[in-house]
Amino acid sequence: MKFEKQGDGLYRLDVTGYVCPHPQLYTKKALEKIGQGEILELVFDNPSSGESIAAMCDSAGNELVSQDLQGGKYTWKIRKAAG
């Protein structure tokens, strides 16, 4: 697991290799740590975590800005909801 600030308002969380429930738990905690309106770039390769993370974002009002799938690896950008 790697969580780092990549730039102004941009963070990256890499949970490649992890299975449930780690990717969704780390994503939840990373979103709690970043500020409103900031972007979390999430990299994971456990398909079932994607379903839970998408539902979690929808429920909390966080926006899934982009989703990419290359070679079984997902890269999603999530903007944390304002307020």
């Binding site: 449930c20 429930p21 969704q24 738990l25 994503t27 939840k28 398909p47 079932s48 994607g50 379903e51 839970s52 993370i53 539902a55 979690m56 429920s59």
Partner: peptide, 20 residues
């Protein structure tokens, strides 16, 4: 369906997701 019974119980408590 990424159908995992573990997710049904765990994701409710862990991340508040009821889909499973």
């Amino acid at each position: 369906g990424r159908f995992c019974f573990s997710s049904a119980f765990r994701d409710l408590f862990a991340v508040g997701v009821p889909r499973m």
